[in-house]
Design a protein around this nucleic acid. Sequence first.
DNA 1: GTGGTCTAGACCACG
DNA 2: GTGGTCTAGACCACG
Lengths: 121, 121, 121, 121
Amino acid sequence: MEFSKNQPIYLQIADYISENILTEKWKEGDRVYSVRELSMKLQVNPNTVMRTYNHLQSEKVLHNQRGIGYFISEGSTDKIRKIKKDNFVKIDLPEIFKTGKLLGVSPRELSDLYQNYLKEV
Amino acid sequence: MEFSKNQPIYLQIADYISENILTEKWKEGDRVYSVRELSMKLQVNPNTVMRTYNHLQSEKVLHNQRGIGYFISEGSTDKIRKIKKDNFVKIDLPEIFKTGKLLGVSPRELSDLYQNYLKEV
Amino acid sequence: MEFSKNQPIYLQIADYISENILTEKWKEGDRVYSVRELSMKLQVNPNTVMRTYNHLQSEKVLHNQRGIGYFISEGSTDKIRKIKKDNFVKIDLPEIFKTGKLLGVSPRELSDLYQNYLKEV
Amino acid sequence: MEFSKNQPIYLQIADYISENILTEKWKEGDRVYSVRELSMKLQVNPNTVMRTYNHLQSEKVLHNQRGIGYFISEGSTDKIRKIKKDNFVKIDLPEIFKTGKLLGVSPRELSDLYQNYLKEV
DNA sequence: GTGGTCTAGACCACG
DNA sequence: GTGGTCTAGACCACG
């Protein structure tokens, strides 16, 4: 896994986990990697993973079973989708639309670009 | 002016200036506010405005005349448009598209949302 | 049995046992559950129960007969009462009183709340 | 300031701050010590104070002004009192009452002990 | 084995 | 100056 500079690593890891849950590669109720395992796997300090898990626990995406590990909470798939959708509609899109308007991009163009993206990826 | 938390204040100020230039509220050749004026007007640390001006100067949008002030450079309108477009296509859109795909948003929906935005604003 | 998050599980189990002794549901001299039995019953790691028994053994509430099991020691009822009382007066109460004072709770209120509790339970 | 072993230091610091707010030694809107200042004052690692501030920010007791520092949020006095009272009534007291009943402490005794405490401190 | 806390210290962006 | 992130590593309680 490669980390970008725009965002703290611990949040990028959180996104990575969220996406695995959202796409149901990881199911609700599953145990996630232990702090140590994931830190080794991602070549990152255990503290950084700990921070990710803390963050996701405070958002009730993960929960801890003492002495055993962290688990994906029930309902987290819906919760993540809801949060992401909210951000998308209320924050990301208005920003993009504002710029798009400023640059004179038409709705047609935008949807064509999106269509191309969907084909390529 | 209100500042969002997602972006450094100095960049938000840069955007504010860029947009005034792009929409030709401020013309090429015009003198912009002095650092002190703008920092008072925006209720912001003068250092922050200084950083904005440095930033815009490095992008050749502004230039400085010693002892007089900062001026909007010739050709800056085009330059800003080019920079914004570049960012838009190479950075902003791919990000939005990635999230859109993850959430199952269709091209049609996206263009509809954009159309609504254009009508409303 | 449900475990709270405030306290280690092994201490919550110790409390559970202590209360059974204190209320004389379990008598001095009785054999308690084996580690395996209790761990199954409480759905808990055997190590955890082991820790509980070690703890209670160090307080001379339980003692071990090799190959047979753990037994409730003579005099443990009094001993538990003494320990609990000590903790109550020296640790629990001062803490509660400190918070009570901070929140402006009067002695009258406190005793009323206690009275209600005694009636209800 | 001395730290007990029962609770993480970063939470003890949070309590210390909360109490200063609750008793209005520190007022809403005030700036609190910078991370570095407080860490020096309490002889503690800056990371630990950072953790406290993060914690209090997530509870909306503190908020951050970029480049300036942390401030006590409006309404935090009420919020802290509410949280403390809730915990007191729903968690702390039932526990104390349970033990009190088990030990045969009377409401009268309890209120006397509290009265003594209030006089002494 | 599991997570949780803490220190020491570095480096950085921002105001 | 301010906070924010991260590493390296230790130590500990708990299951």
